[in-house]
């Protein structure tokens, strides 16, 4: 059985990128997955139609935290319209794994937080 815990997920879980809070942000949101207790908060700095910076914080399982970390890397430098179109399959491609429906919710929490932040 191939493991869900590939190097990329473990690496991002153990050393999350863009973890913390921004000194200045234009958009922010938090989201919560009640079944696992995963929590995420995301802050965006959008300037001149570009996502200049993203930071996240939170707690939860490796999948939820690693996917948030991977997503922040993906988002920086994109324009918000382009970033808004990122879907489940793109996120799974970033993670490099297939997820069971239960664990998919953990991964999708980062997208949910980002989408909420864009609307904020």
């Amino acid at each position: 059985m191939s493991s869900l815990y590939q190097a990329i997920i473990l690496d991002h879980y153990r050393n999350p990128r863009h973890h913390g809070t921004l000194a200045r942000h234009t958009h922010a949101a938090n989201a919560h997955n009640p079944t696992c207790g995963d929590r995420l908060e995301m802050q965006l700095l959008i300037k001149d139609g570009i996502i200049e910076d993203v930071m996240f914080s939170g707690s939860g399982c490796a999948i939820s935290q690693a996917s948030a970390s991977l997503l922040t890397e993906f988002l920086i430098g994109k324009n918000p319209e382009e970033a808004r179109r990122i879907g489940k399959d793109d996120l799974l491609a970033l993670l490099g794994v297939d997820l069971s429906p239960n664990r998919l919710k953990c991964a999708l929490l980062s997208l949910e937080t980002f989408t909420k932040a864009l609307k904020s």
Binding site: Y5, C36, G60, C61, I63, C106
Partner: peptide, 12 residues
């Protein structure tokens, strides 16, 4: 280690 990660790894 989150309980879900533990259960998943043990399941593997």
């Amino acid at each position: 280690i989150h309980p879900h990660d533990l259960a998943q790894i043990l399941g593997e």
